[in-house]
């Protein structure tokens, strides 16, 4: 099971400030605790500013086939937006970012683990439920699961012909991130401050 928790209001606003946004909620699987009420309140505030081109609320968006079917009728509203803001666990954000390709996709939530069954996640994407979602700094590709060293400040020197030093069948996650950011025209994101991971996911310690 897992808990999704809204990132701070300031964090989310800084991502979408002045931009037209399309919002996607995943009310997902019963294994996820989703902050429905807080998300709705925040989204109403955003909508009042007049910058929201549409809201889609579905379940199981982590399933690429399901997402593809359900997102179609919203594509005009997504086209009209500068960015897509996703309220879901880390897998949902990655699925949408991959599907939309050159549209910036941002995570509005952090995902924390709870013991138990982990929901219906496809094999292509994974979320380690690290509680400090990096997807907004990496073009929607998770460096924790896509990099064998879970590096958060860029690639190591170990990739050869685009493949990871650990597994020659695995693409270097950071090369994928670099290509995606280039595709989005957002290589400037790589100039963000040095990231230091916080393993103290226990709330009392981390705050």
């Amino acid at each position: 099971m897992l808990i999704t928790e809204l990132k701070s209001k300031e964090t989310i606003v800084s991502l979408v400030d002045g931009k037209k946004v399309f919002i996607i909620n995943c009310h997902g699987c019963k294994e996820v605790h989703f902050p429905e009420k807080e998300a709705a309140e925040f989204q109403k505030e955003l909508a009042d500013s007049g910058n929201v081109t549409g809201i889609m609320t579905k379940d199981y968006i982590c399933n690429p086939e399901n997402l593809k079917l359900r997102i179609q009728k919203y594509m005009d509203a997504i086209e009209a937006a500068d960015a897509v803001l996703v309220f879901s666990c880390g897998v949902g954000v990655q699925t949408i970012a991959e599907y939309l390709g050159d549209k910036p996709v941002y995570a509005a939530c952090d995902t924390y683990p709870l013991p138990g069954f982990q929901g219906v996640t496809p094999l292509e994407y994974d979320c380690k439920q690290c509680g400090e979602c990096y997807l907004n700094l990496t073009g929607g590709i998770c460096p924790i699961t896509a990099c064998s060293k879970s590096l958060v400040n860029g690639q190591c020197g170990g990739s050869k012909d685009g493949k990871c030093e650990v597994d020659s069948n695995m693409e270097c996650g950071w090369e994928r991130i670099y290509r995606r950011l280039a595709q989005l025209g957002r290589l400037d994101v790589l100039k963000c401050p040095t990231q230091v991971r916080n393993y103290a996911t226990d709330e009392e310690v981390s705050k």
Binding site: N153, G154, Q155, G157, S159, K160, D161, G162, C172, W174, E175, Y178, L187, L190
Partner: peptide, 10 residues
């Protein structure tokens, strides 16, 4: 490196 631009970014 074959991904020299990513190396420069790092």
């Amino acid at each position: 490196s074959d991904s020299v631009d990513a190396q420069l970014a790092k």
